[in-house]
């Protein structure tokens, strides 16, 4: 970081006060606003039909409408997100539990493999109408869809994390007479948890998609229903505002999971290792001091 700073400082001396990073940010902004400007101009000059391709300014206006003036996005956002969280937790528990069960048991693994292959090839979101017919309209069928859509990634990742143990390390552990519990805690889990976390991240994204599909079919409440209704009314600007809301939500989910991953699997990053090392050093110092 420090080296990069001195490098950019050296460059900034040549390029008239702007550092490399500042110049890049400026160029990014320039490209972005040129695109937006072209879009706006195209819509205003009648090259783009505003009925289907709304102007950026009218999308901004829709943001104002759905967030502040009408405020109807909050309720739907809450409805979708509570479903997503509930389904994701259910799917995670199911996926990780089943993955661990299958991963630790070679017989179960052998017999389950063909079913897993079949399940992997099925577009799992396609069971949505079936589940709605079986469980009825409402939250229960939506959550069932989300659970079904998002359990698979944690399942596969837990399975592969548990199965793909480093053979050499395992031999070392055995030669030191490690117990099964020790092998699990100190060898299998440290390697498996980052993989499982990656599965959880995929699952959360899939959960959001599953919730949207469920809402598209049920059309009662939530972001999916909102987008559908706005588009059917050809209120494209509001529909786009909803989609950009989901983009922001997706970004927050991505960053949030990255943060959680960073803290749970702390041994995979230097800052986490340093934190642990510092703590141990302090403890050791205190012990020696006594």
């Amino acid at each position: 970081m420090a080296a990069q700073d001195t490098m950019t400082e050296g460059l900034s001396a040549r390029s008239g006060g702007l550092s490399l990073r500042q110049r890049r940010t400026l160029l990014h902004a320039l490209i972005f606003f040129t695109l937006i400007g072209l879009w706006e101009a195209g819509a205003r000059l009648g090259l783009l039909d505003p009925l289907f391709y709304p102007r950026p300014t009218s999308i901004l206006n829709s943001f104002y409408l759905i967030y502040i003036k009408n405020g109807n996005v909050w309720f739907n956002l809450y409805a979708t997100m509570s479903l997503v969280i509930a389904g994701w937790i259910g799917g995670s528990i199911l996926g990780v539990g089943l993955g661990a069960l299958v991963g630790f048991n070679a017989v179960v693994r052998r017999f389950l493999k063909p079913y897993v292959i079949v399940l992997e090839a099925t577009p799992r979101i396609a069971v949505a109408p079936l589940l709605i017919a079986a469980l009825g309209f409402g939250a229960s069928s939506k959550i069932a869809i989300i659970v079904l859509v998002c359990f698979f990634a944690p399942f596969i990742n837990t399975l592969s994390g548990v199965v793909n143990v480093n053979e050499d390390k395992l031999e070392l552990f055995r030669s030191l007479r490690a117990t099964k519990m020790q092998v699990l805690r100190k060898l299998v889990l440290p390697d498996a948890i980052p993989v499982i976390m990656a599965g959880e991240r995929l699952a959360l994204t899939a959960a959001l998609s599953g919730a949207l599909v469920a809402e598209f079919i049920q059309r009662d409440q939530g972001m999916g229903a909102l987008i559908l209704v706005y588009t059917r009314n050809l209120n494209m600007a509001s529909s786009f505002a909803c989609i950009f809301t989901l983009t922001i939500l997706g970004f927050l989910i991505f960053k949030g999971m990255e943060w959680v991953d960073h803290h749970i699997a702390y041994w995979k990053n230097e800052a986490g290792m340093k934190r642990i090392g510092d703590r141990r050093r302090r403890q050791f110092g205190a012990q020696v001091g006594e």
């Binding site: 598209f216 987008i227 983009t247």
Partner: peptide
């Protein structure tokens, strides 16, 4: 990528 692509379904149909 962070936008759930499925959310675009109604718009793409329009």
């Amino acid at each position: 990528n962070v936008t759930p692509g499925i959310a675009l379904t109604p718009i793409i149909i329009a």
